[in-house]
Design a protein around this nucleic acid. Structure first.
Lengths: 228, 228
DNA sequence: GGCGACAATATTGTATACAATTTTTGATTA
DNA sequence: TAATCAAAAATTGTATACAATATTGTCGCC
């Protein structure tokens, strides 16, 4: 439906989708320069289409464009990080409730397949892929809820979360234990909207608490920001 | 801060902003073709910058781009119309509550100035401008709440609402009676978050009920869409 | 050796040219 | 007259060329 979601799904073949995929799987670090000529050469297209892709990604807050300086992988600050999860806390629990009322056997199977794929990725030692699939799980719930507008917002927020996790995850804690996702599936499959909403709310709180969002917790990546 | 908000404020001098302004003030009808050459000539720039602008507007759902066919002013359907207002109902009441806790004398003056300007526009027989300012009122509240992420979402939703109103407003009812906005200002100025949240919720319900969102209520505007 | 100005380089912003696709038009025929 | 098909026109998609701006390197001077 939307290319931003396709990027997280890994099914997008567009330039924007392929860049986004690399960002989501943490193969490009926040702050990295995204030169137009470089990308054009890598993908075998002209700067025109690269620019279009970068502008799309900038609108999704995955990329920052500075006039006459170029595009960089975004580095969400602490404030933005908190805001993203506050927005998720506002949107996703209610969306999970809606989804619970719209579950079909296919939907259940789809969500379970996602968890399985996430496990497989972890077993194969590909944490980047596992992380991406974990975000995709949230997006699929939003898709099931069948509200395109909110689905778009959640897609963007999950994508931003990927960057935030790259920057602020304290590796001491387990990220997105699949336990929470399993419990969510159960509530959704039962059509128990109340519990789904509650579980999602708790799950998002767990997610935030697995991050280190204390002031000045992150090493300065951008020299200018750090030294001026 | 964001260009989408600047467009509603009428302070944007970019191509995207000027097109958006015309859409918001209903000077371009939903479904209208936005040819790249035409726009380029009007604004005295090349197609390159026009394309950039159109892509930005497409991302904000103000414009629809069809591959190899061009850009058109969006025509949100009934479903999208409902979804936009459901999303607003989810985001704006909570945002009004946050704003109530952050009001300053300047903020109050700003909101009151908006209401005054809206009245003036109506007196001067410029309903398009009045409608735009009425939407801007909601955006200013979101700005006061000081959450950039949600602010961006609300900005987009208010902009889409402008199109929805153009398509589905049943002119029998008064739109956005300033009474509701006055009451909101009072609650916000008092720092009464509970009441601000409740007033905003009710205000949005009034807005929806002033629209005619019954199935097949709208005549087909685009012949091609209707007959193929 | 450090600092500042200026030149060289590299990169982005914009315009234009060409290719691909769609839409229109009009001639031809049943 | 209506339908069909092909050629022409118009429009968008992409690539390239040029202009503007920022960055980097170098030289001279203190």
């Amino acid at each position: 439906m939307e290319d931003a979601a396709d990027a997280l799904a890994g099914t997008s073949t567009t330039v924007a989708g392929r860049i986004a995929l690399a960002i989501h799987e943490h193969r490009i670090a926040p702050g990295a320069k995204l030169g137009e000529d470089d990308l054009g050469e890598i993908f075998g297209v002209s700067r025109t289409v690269v620019r279009t892709a970068l502008q799309r990604l900038a609108h999704d807050r995955l990329v920052t464009i500075q006039r006459n300086r170029g595009a960089f992988v975004a580095q969400p600050g602490l404030r933005e990080a908190r805001e993203v999860f506050e927005a998720r806390a506002l949107l996703e629990p209610r969306t999970a409730r809606s989804a619970a009322q719209r579950m079909t056997p296919d939907s259940i199977a789809l969500l379970q397949a996602h968890i399985t794929a996430e496990h497989d990725a972890l077993d194969q030692g590909d944490p980047g892929r596992a992380l991406r699939l974990s975000g995709l799980f949230h997006i699929e719930i939003a898709r099931i809820a069948d509200q395109a507008t909110i689905f778009g917002f959640i897609t963007q927020l999950v994508a931003q979360s990927s960057l935030i996790i790259a920057l602020y995850w304290q590796r001491r804690t387990a990220l997105c234990e699949s336990h929470a996702h399993h419990a969510l599936i159960r509530a959704l499959a039962d059509g128990d909207g109340d519990q789904a909403e509650e579980l999602m709310k708790g799950h998002l709180l767990d997610l935030v608490s697995s991050l280190d969002l204390r002031p000045k917790a992150t090493p300065p990546i951008n020299l200018r920001d750090a030294l001026t």
